[in-house]
Design a protein around this nucleic acid. Structure first.
Length: 755
DNA sequence: ACCCCGTTTATTTTT
DNA sequence: TAAACGGGGT
């Protein structure tokens, strides 16, 4: 135990050893957040305050959950299987599997990912003959997910106009369709569990009594439903240990509510708020920059990072004339870092949006520097894998129409759109699944469809006693998927991926503790279930959704859940010592010796949409804060006067965030206010855009040019983005950054040129 | 049933 | 720019 608490600083120690009450830990970047979280669990167990089964730890990502588990198993000399550590969705899945009857779901319900959900909505709109211009599927999806995230069912929503009434109506129809198919979307996993526990008192009390300690990671990212879910599970007596950082809240756009931190303090009567402000990651100048920047946010719980490390290197700032030049500068700097002995994987290039990676990738490629881009397609998202998964889904639950449609004619079986429309009509009339409708389709389409259904049924029958990997193999062979991709010109990779799926299945069953030979379709045995049965005080029998998974679902169901909930690694040239390219969002939680934050321009970072959204600029500032605090020793900031965006050259001014950083921490590598690109090479930029010539001719008479930086007494500094008209009629679009884009008459407006 | 070509649209993303 | 989608033609 001494060992356990040994190297903690006073605040960390205080947090780890708090009494069993709800507490809020404000954990700054690099302050040892995960360490506190895991040590807290280990300490509770070692001091005998709780048994592993009494611990519930919730994270947002599978990665974070795995990290916690591996740290815990290093800390504790025991099997940590009894602990519930997982993502909100993973834990809900487990609960719903164990209590599927109470939750009114089929035992083999399946999970729709975002793609599946959208295609299902499209299908529904089409079937109802609804104009998808007027009711865009995407909007409906956001509406549905937003409602679910707020805990609302269709009947709970008051629509004030015709348009919204329609949305509500469609939401209701969508839910009914999901129910018929036995599928749930991501938000549904949470909402269904919430409803299950709130309606079923014995069940709720059972879990409330079990989980005396609930620990939550990244609390600032919780949405309203997750917050209420925690509140429900915590009941009145349990201790919720919430760890988060309001300054790193960057997911409001997907429903995260930072306000949950303040609400938590109030509603869970938090006696102990501990701030972890000692930073173990970054050098002084870097932290100064982060602190100074974030102080510009008004809505904060308040926190200031400090370090024992010295100032370190100043933050280098570079102003490029073009995105291309910016990229080349990154390469030059990286080369010298590498020459000084830095390893490539310790250098990260961050950007606001994915599109920005192109130029940088191109430059890195030309320079022959290995790199890795985060955020590509992941294993279970690949088309061929999704097809294979769809076959498996049909074996497990033939009523999953999304899966049915995905593969009914893939590989081609002569079942075209026409036949499928007919089938869908029959299914709608009979209010049944496509699978069940097949028997009622006459003629040749009927025969072909029947053959398809028979194919699925045969694989199911043939593999009923086989293990999961064996089943996957048979499915691949019998479905014709492998044959199909073998005959395709560029199918070799896909065949290889499909073979990897067998390996993935094999790895999965051994990791999750299913016996090697357990039949893929074998559900929990009656005795196993009986062994888990608990009779509560009211005489109600409850089966606890306890680990391992083997007790609540079949290997196949478990594997399919896994495929939906854990999309797998985004493919990477792993092993190589490569530079790391990613969005700022993707960088959250990571750290690097050297970090480049690129594209620091008005309109991009902060993004132009940030100005419009409520609290958008503060969120953008937090994003910048996250970016800065990724760096350990070296930080580079860059922006460019011009940038190619959507096939057009955009003229930008530097981000307002530069004005919010401490001057003494920065070292400007290029002159701050000096010649712009057009001064030295006036022709180059528009040589290939003849259309702009007339405007330029007229504007040059007046002395104005696109790209010119100007000063307006009211709007401040801006850049001329476009000039239209000529002579006495010349007007210019000027980007004044924080003050927006203005269209000004050049003959009237009082503008000063900034050199 | 499939392919081609024009149109449209472009933050951030985990589950 | 470029990728994804949908309509229409073969």
């Amino acid at each position: 135990m001494q060992n356990l608490l040994h190297n903690l600083n006073p605040e960390q120690l205080a947090a780890v050893t708090l009494p069993s009450q709800s507490a809020l830990i404000l954990a700054g970047a690099g302050s040892g957040k995960t360490r506190v979280l895991t040590t807290r669990i280990a300490w509770l167990i070692q001091t005998g305050q709780i048994s592993p089964a009494g611990v519930l730890a919730v994270t947002f990502t599978n990665k974070a959950a795995k990290e916690m588990m591996s740290r815990l198993s290093a800390m504790l000399p025991m099997n940590i299987r009894g602990m519930w550590i997982g993502t909100f969705h993973g834990l809900c899945n487990r609960l719903l599997r164990a209590h599927y009857r109470d939750a009114a779901l089929p035992q083999s319900f399946q999970i729709l990912d975002t793609q599946d959900q959208l295609s299902m909505i499209k299908r529904m709109l089409k079937a109802l003959n609804i104009d998808d211009e007027k009711y865009p599927p995407r909007n409906l999806m956001y509406f549905i997910n937003g409602a679910k995230d707020d805990g609302l069912r269709a009947q709970d929503i008051d629509a004030h106009d015709e348009y919204n009434r329609r949305f509500v109506e469609l939401y209701d129809i969508y839910d009914q369709q999901c129910q018929r198919e036995g599928v749930v979307d991501f938000a549904e996993l949470l909402l269904r569990t919430y409803e299950l526990l709130s309606r079923n008192q014995p069940l709720r009390e059972h879990y409330q009594q079990r989980f005396r300690h609930i620990l939550v990671d990244e609390f600032q990212d919780t949405n309203n439903l997750q917050y209420n879910w925690l509140k429900l599970l915590a009941g009145r007596d349990n201790a919720v240990f919430a760890v988060g950082d309001d300054d790193q809240s960057i997911y409001a756009f997907r429903g995260a509510n930072v306000g949950n931190m303040a609400a938590f303090e109030r509603e869970f009567s938090v006696q102990n708020l501990i701030k972890l402000e000692q930073n173990y990651r970054s050098h002084g100048y870097i932290l100064d920059a982060a602190n100074t920047l974030i102080a510009n946010n008004a809505k904060r719980l308040g926190k200031n990072l400090r370090t024992d490390a010295g100032h370190g290197e100043p933050i280098r700032v570079y102003e490029a004339t073009s995105d291309l030049q910016e990229a080349n500068w990154i390469i030059e700097e990286s080369k010298s870092l590498i020459a000084e002995g830095a390893s490539r994987s310790e250098i990260a290039v961050l950007y606001r949006s994915n599109a920005q990676s192109r130029v940088i990738e191109h430059a890195l490629f030309s320079a022959g520097i290995p790199y890795r881009v985060y955020g590509g397609q992941r294993f279970f998202e690949r088309a061929e894998i999704k097809h294979a998964i769809a076959y498996l889904q049909l074996i497990d639950n033939p009523h999953n129409d999304s899966a049915f449609l995905r593969v009914v004619n893939f590989p081609a079986r002569g079942i075209g759109a026409r036949s499928l429309e007919g089938l869908q009509d029959v299914a709608r009339q009979r209010r049944c699944s496509l699978h069940d409708a097949v028997a009622h389709v006459p003629g040749r389409p009927g025969t072909l469809l029947t053959n398809f259904v028979k194919l699925i049924d045969d694989v199911r029958a043939e593999t009923a006693l086989l293990s999961l990997p064996e089943m996957v193999q048979v499915m691949l062979d019998n479905s014709g998927l492998i044959t199909h991709y073998r005959s395709e010109r560029e199918g070799a990779d896909r065949v290889e991926n499909l073979e990897q799926l067998v390996a993935a299945a094999s790895q999965f069953i051994s990791e999750e503790g299913f016996g090697r030979g357990t039949p893929a379709l074998q559900g929990p045995s009656a005795e196993a279930v009986a062994g888990q049965a608990i009779v509560n005080a009211d005489g109600v029998e409850i089966v606890d959704a306890d680990a391992p998974l083997t007790l609540v679902m079949s290997p196949l169901s478990a594997f399919l859940s896994h495929a939906s909930l854990e999309a797998g690694d985004n493919q990477a040239q792993a092993g190589q010592d490569a530079m790391q390219l990613m969005t700022v969002h993707a960088a959250k939680g990571l750290e690097f010796d050297a970090v480049f934050i690129t594209g620091l321009e008005e309109g991009l970072f902060p993004h132009e949409n940030s100005d419009k959204a409520e609290g958008g600029v503060e969120e953008a500032r937090r994003l910048m804060y996250v970016a800065i605090t990724r760096a350990r020793r070296r930080l580079y900031l860059s922006f460019s006067q011009t940038r190619m965006l959507h096939g057009q050259t955009r003229f930008n001014i530097k981000s307002r965030f530069f004005d919010e950083l401490p001057e003494e921490a920065l070292k400007w590598l290029s002159p701050k206010v000096q010649h712009h690109w057009f001064a030295s090479q006036p022709r180059a930029a528009w040589a290939d855009t003849p259309s702009k010539q007339p405007a330029l001719a007229s504007s040059t008479e007046l002395g104005w040019r696109i790209g010119q930086t100007v000063l307006h007494q009211k709007f401040g500094e801006g850049v001329i983005v476009n000039i239209e008209g000529g002579g006495g009629n010349a007007r210019a679009s000027i980007n004044f950054g924080p003050n927006g884009m203005k269209l000004l008459d050049l003959t009237i407006a009082k503008l000063e040129k900034v050199a």
